[in-house]
């Protein structure tokens, strides 16, 4: 009976994993396919990787995506931290509910709507004041910052509400002016949440296709946009190679992040043990 159950559980597990990972595995395997046809195996080769590195279109898109993601993550972390502090440390100021609602709304707004409204905004701005002259890096970064900031705000706010407010009061009581206290006490204590927020914003920006498509202009193709437009013409092996590289990049980042977090946790546990002695 027990054995039967466990066999059933195991097969469900295997099926689940297979469903998730076989497509990924096939992408990786076919990226080493010598054949030009994406679905026919023609022997092992790494030529698509070489071709990928010579393809300036791909390199430009990848570089643009990275630049946008880094800038977005940085601005989203700055603004999101400020908004999170306002929401959890300034008490019930007038218009707080409205402010909270408007900060969080990009989380639930359909991406198509966000993208379209931002596009209309940029077009009217261009007609009115001549800025932005053309759409690309700047407009995509602004658009990404507006929605990534919402995620950072939520992370910072939850970290701050879990933090003992008397820490900041104590610092003020000891002579720290409010702005000084933010830099001395608040920011160092929410730093892990800010790093988490930065990484999340970075990933969201790197990943986004819909909003970027709306607010981008000619010559401003991000990596997801490039892949999507290439796939429309049929899956080519160099896309498989590109996907493999992205999988590798993401896996390494996840492993590094996990390792860093485990080390931090071990350090805390060690401190606790010393304290218990």
């Amino acid at each position: 009976m027990n054995r039967k159950t466990s066999r059933f559980v195991l097969s469900v597990l295997a099926f689940g994993y297979a469903f998730l990972y076989i497509p990924l595995a096939s992408v990786i395997v076919y990226s080493f396919n010598d054949s030009r046809l994406a679905t026919v195996w023609g022997g092992f080769s790494t030529r698509w990787y070489g071709e990928l590195l010579r393809n300036e279109q791909v390199l430009d898109a990848a570089f643009l995506s990275l630049r946008i993601a880094v800038t977005t993550a940085t601005f989203a972390t700055i603004f999101g931290t400020m908004a999170g502090m306002a929401l959890s440390r300034f008490g019930g100021f007038r218009g707080r509910t409205l402010f909270a609602g408007m900060i969080i709304s990009p989380l639930v707004m359909p991406e198509v709507i966000t993208g379209l409204s931002l596009l209309l905004l940029f077009i009217s701005l261009q007609q009115l004041i001549g800025w932005p002259a053309h759409r690309g890096f700047t407009t995509i970064t602004i658009a990404h910052t507006t929605f990534a900031m919402a995620y950072v705000t939520v992370i910072i706010q939850s970290r701050l509400s879990g933090m003992d407010q008397s820490l900041e009061e104590a610092a003020m009581d000891l002579g720290g002016r409010p702005l000084r206290v933010v830099f001395d006490i608040t920011l160092p204590l929410i730093a892990p949440a800010m790093v988490a927020g930065w990484l999340l914003a970075f990933t969201l920006s790197l990943d986004d296709l819909v909003i970027a498509t709306f607010v981008s202009g000619p010559g401003g193709s991000t990596l997801p946009m490039l892949i999507f437009s290439k796939v429309k013409l049929g899956v080519t092996p160099d896309i498989n190679a590109l996907a493999t590289l992205i999988i590798l990049f993401v896996s390494i980042s996840v492993i590094v992040a996990w390792y860093a977090m485990r080390r931090m946790q071990r350090q805390t546990e060690k401190n606790m043990q010393t304290a218990a002695k």
């Binding site: 003992d164 008397s166 820490l167 009061e169 104590a170 003020m172 009581d173 000891l174 002579g175």
Partner: peptide
């Protein structure tokens, strides 16, 4: 303001 007063406080949570 708290930082101007000649007063210091010991918090219940110690902070």
């Amino acid at each position: 303001a708290p930082y101007q007063r000649p007063v210091n406080m010991m918090f219940q949570s110690y902070a």
